[in-house]
Design a protein around this nucleic acid. Structure first.
Lengths: 273, 273
DNA sequence: CGGAAGGTTGAGCCCCATCAATTATTGTGG
DNA sequence: CCACAATAATTGATGGGGCTCAACCTTCCG
């Protein structure tokens, strides 16, 4: 059993080798995601591209937003991972949402001026930053873009609801399986990972904070999943060994991610403000 | 100890005696809630009032929406309680959100045509039903109404995030205290309950499904809260005995409910479509 | 080389689940 | 009016899933 671990240890991994970042431009993954509910036209893509943004390279573990901070900036994750999280006074931490490349935060500015939770990076990498207002204005001018952003919000909500079910009613094995499968699907949407697995640049402590477990128990759960041939994590790479069995354990049904197109999507509009 | 229980048993309680339903009209509590982020004008109130709605009297425990159903109707709870919930194959149930008088569901129709969870009543009472599209159209015509609805969505999200923290990182006592306090604040927003307590028409089984606990453990937790003089539930009535201590245990800070007005609210507009 | 970070494993315990039984209350049909 | 069932609250006994504490190993890095 020692070799298994030793073999799988942290060798220098090419940081973003998965698809060579061939996705067009810095907004590539955001496009891939927003394009999901309905195809965006050149108009919408341009509207996004011409937004004035700052580039921010943040190290892993940096707080971008703290509880109580103003919510007036949108952060777009290009290649790195992040999370929204809450902390209790004694240090217990609960991750509310794991943020993947192409995800963004900060568009509740319309109504909530202060954040009731924190946002942080989980890995090092470049972010795009822009005033929330600019993105919301663009969404108002381009209805299809507005729909895409709204889809994004509802999808995030759906994901959080699954996590709520996980934490409330599912065992450690079940919820861990569910998270691994969910990340797989979300990553594939933005062109990351393969059919069999993906890179997971998170520590077990971070997974624990997302799963409402302790680091120790996450470890035991992952080892059990490996022992039983369900999935394994070696060298920051998740390999899904028995997708059907895992989905069965987790009662995973990808429908909640709404990765198909929206049925009644508005026409390929041309109406600017 | 027997008298305490016997004294507090289910006597016939006047169903909605709390304030005699003096809130203006069938949309009264909805108004109270939507009025929170910014004061709505006569225009917005009229826009709501003139929507064509059906009245539906549903018994307790009726499913209004099932998983997979179309999301094309808005349900407004007038005086009764409801919930959104998910069920696992083996029957385990997790309540995602408790719905109070004045709450509504069903405005994700814009982008999500199918529901990935169920909506049910928890108590008997009249509901208002209308096509989602109509409400969304009204929100588009009346920007202030749109902001109010958006505030409502973000607030629901904030509540769910707290529940996520509860289920992930808080003990039974902590999360139960948190829920009791949260309901207290939410009810007061719509004119229900008093400074010291409120009517809670839920079974312990229902509370358990919301808290990610078992009925048995909810019971023990509530008894403990009573024994320690923190709060008690008698005859469907919650009495908060030591608000400060309870808030301390739950780390409850009402800020996340955003029950204050929105700072940068748009002007008292007059622009109809 | 030493320390820090992350992963792994064992021992022991506790919070909460499970199972089961009792009581009170309400509603129902005879 | 009364048996009867159903619902809900309550309590005890028991067990287990996950937490706590602690140690150890490997890799990384200054």
């Amino acid at each position: 059993m020692t070799e298994a671990r030793a073999a799988g240890r942290r060798r220098p991994v090419p940081c973003e080798a998965e698809d060579g970042d061939a996705v067009a431009g810095p907004l590539g993954r955001l496009f891939l995601r927003l394009n999901t509910p309905l195809p965006l036209g050149a108009e919408e893509l341009d509207a996004l591209r011409t937004l004035r943004m700052q580039r921010l390279v943040a190290p892993a573990g940096r707080d971008l937003v703290r509880e109580g901070d103003a919510v007036d900036r949108v952060y777009i994750f290009q290649r790195s991972w992040g999370c929204r999280y809450a902390t209790l006074e004694d240090g217990r931490r609960q991750i509310l949402q794991i943020l993947l490349p192409g995800d963004h935060v900060g568009d509740s500015a319309e109504v909530f001026s202060r954040s009731d939770h924190a946002v942080a990076t989980l890995t090092e990498g470049p972010l795009l930053v822009l005033p929330s207002r600019d993105l919301l204005d663009a969404a108002r001018r381009r209805p299809r873009l507005g729909v895409a952003l709204e889809w994004s919000r509802w999808r995030d909500l759906a994901i959080m609801q699954r996590r709520l079910v996980d934490l409330g009613r599912r065992s450690a094995l079940e919820r861990t399986a569910h998270l691994l499968l969910e990340l797989h699907h979300r990553l594939q949407l933005v062109g990351l990972g393969s059919a069999r697995g993906y890179r997971l640049p998170l520590t077990q402590q971070t997974l624990a904070d997302a799963l409402g477990l302790t680091e120790v128990h996450v470890n035991r759960t992952l080892r059990r999943m490996a022992r039983e041939g369900l999935a394994r994590i070696d060298d920051q790479r998740v390999t899904i060994l028995r997708p059907e069995r895992l989905a069965e354990i987790a009662e995973f049904d990808e429908g909640y991610l709404h990765h198909g197109p929206v049925p009644g999507a508005p026409p390929p509009d041309e109406n600017a403000a």
